[in-house]
């Protein structure tokens, strides 16, 4: 198991190096010049000023030299300085990564618990009304764009039933309150963004776990459980769900990247102070180093999520536990 983990980590590092190098070139292929953006914000610039800025940030060097410098600094934990904010990228990301992780994990928990619960209920009576309703809800949820769902929720909760805050992560009026009040406030703010991000994934898990449960409920070992005299609840949740959950775990790991990119949209819609809004700003401002840093962190999160998924799968399925 330890050897397996080390190997996975090594692959993960390779993958992240690949992501960084690829992004480094891709960003520079895009039209636009960061020197002009930097200079533009200062209010017009001559060619000499632009050249000075380029020299200052090392943008006048050949691409490979720039890449070498970037990677060298990265090895020492330095992700560079943001052109726009004039602060270290790691510091900027450090301030934003927490809210994004909170949002993504909350959406993951919501979508898996509600989605699997819907799937299990639907699988109990595959031709029943409930099963049909779950299918309809899942299809709609899958088809609705994340940002549109966010906007609809904002309209609903901003004006029609204003029970949830529709913007930001915390109420600044509460910043001198105790930690419990502030935590409840954050959860209150989290509700809408987490839900709108969760909807599409919830639909995926509902359909997947319905199909998987139907499959498992027809399995011989489920009949064995019934033949033992196990109650229907035990058959469903102890014998069937544990097996039916395996594909859900796999897909949950694969969907993590999708969840992160969905978070970018949701954060923008709800003004959630996470990495998504940071990335959005970085793209608009040609802030190469900041964007590279954000993408690097996103890749790291996906790699970690995949390793966690693999470990979870191994814990859930003893058939994989032995070999590495």
């Amino acid at each position: 198991m330890a050897g397996y983990l080390l190997r996975r980590l090594a692959y993960g590092l390779l993958l992240m190096a690949g992501v960084v190098i690829l992004n480094f070139f891709l960003i520079r292929l895009a039209p636009g010049d960061p020197a002009e953006v930097i200079a533009g914000d200062m209010g017009g610039a001559t060619a000499e000023v632009l050249a000075a800025i380029r020299a200052d940030y090392g943008l006048d060097q050949p691409l490979l030299v720039q890449l070498g410098r970037y990677l060298g600094a990265m090895m020492q934990g330095d992700l560079g300085e943001s052109y726009f904010f004039n602060r270290p990228v790691s510091e900027l990301i450090g301030a934003r990564i927490g809210p994004t992780i909170l949002l993504v994990l909350a959406a993951q928990v919501i979508s898996i618990t509600i989605g699997v619960a819907m799937g299990v209920m639907a699988a109990r009576k595959p031709n029943g009304v409930l099963s049909g309703a779950v299918s309809v809800v899942a299809t709609i949820g899958y088809a609705v764009p994340v940002f549109w769902m966010g906007i609809m929720l904002i309209i609903l909760f901003a004006s029609i039933i204003p029970i949830f805050p529709v913007e930001g992560m915390a109420d600044i009026r509460l910043r001198n309150e105790g930690w419990l009040e502030r935590m409840i406030d954050i959860l209150h703010h989290l509700a809408l963004p987490a839900f709108s991000l969760a909807v599409i994934f919830l639909a995926i898990y509902a359909r997947l776990s319905r199909a998987s449960m139907l499959d498992v409920l027809g399995a011989d070992y489920v009949r064995t459980a019934r033949a033992k005299g196990a109650s229907e609840r035990s058959v469903l949740f102890r014998h069937a769900l544990r097996n039916a959950a395996l594909p859900v775990i796999t897909v949950a790991g694969l969907q993590f990247g999708g969840l992160l990119s969905g978070a970018l949209l949701v954060e923008t819609v709800f003004n959630w102070p996470g990495m998504g809004t940071l990335a959005f700003d970085a793209i608009l401002r040609r802030d190469y180093t900041l964007l590279l840093g954000v993408l690097f962190c996103a890749a790291a999160m996906v790699v970690i999520a995949n390793i966690v998924t693999d470990l979870a799968y191994r814990l859930a399925d003893p058939r994989l536990g032995g070999e590495t």
């Binding site: 399995a219 011989d220 009949r223 064995t224 019934r226 033949a227 005299g229 196990a230 003893p318």
Partner: peptide, 22 residues
């Protein structure tokens, strides 16, 4: 359910698939 497993028990054809893998 009471009787199943206690008074009447059954052995199935496919031992490969009749036991729960997890």
């Amino acid at each position: 359910r009471r009787l199943r497993g206690s008074e009447i028990a059954m052995i199935f054809q496919e031992p490969m698939t009749s036991l729960n893998p997890v």
